[in-house]
């Protein structure tokens, strides 16, 4: 492990900001690890017709919640994103909601 780190001087420039921050936050607060709801509940079919499910992953303004907030895993987020966009197209979900 130490060898690989030393062997890549390029990654060293990226390391401090990302790595250190994570350590600091972990020390200061206890943050529960986020899990993907679709994986945990074993929802394979992320369907655009399922408004109830999809509306849990859009903000008040109608925006799709980012992964870093909702904790959805990458493959699921990709499918979720498509589903939300399809639902918007057929007026099941809003593109945006006025303030």
């Amino acid at each position: 492990m130490a060898e690989t780190r030393g062997g890549r001087p390029i990654s060293a420039s990226q390391r401090p900001t990302g790595g250190d921050k994570a350590v600091v936050t972990r020390k200061q607060y206890f943050r529960r690890k986020k899990v993907c709801r679709f994986c945990v509940e074993k929802i394979d079919n992320i369907d655009y017709k399922d408004v109830k499910l999809l509306s849990a992953f859009i903000s008040e303004r109608g925006r799709i919640t980012p992964r870093r907030i909702s904790g959805v895993c990458t493959p699921c987020q990709r499918r979720l994103c498509v589903a939300v966009k399809q639902a918007r197209n057929i007026a099941l979900l809003p593109f945006s909601t006025p303030l």
Binding site: K42, D44, N45, Y48, Q86, N89, I90, A91
Partner: peptide, 23 residues
């Protein structure tokens, strides 16, 4: 007709079936 959407689902159904079987 106000709006319509067509979605091809045979590939998705196959994929779902595969996932279900794997599970």
């Amino acid at each position: 007709v106000l709006k319509y959407i067509t979605v091809r689902i045979d590939e998705k159904l196959q994929w779902l079936d595969k996932r279900k079987k794997a599970r």
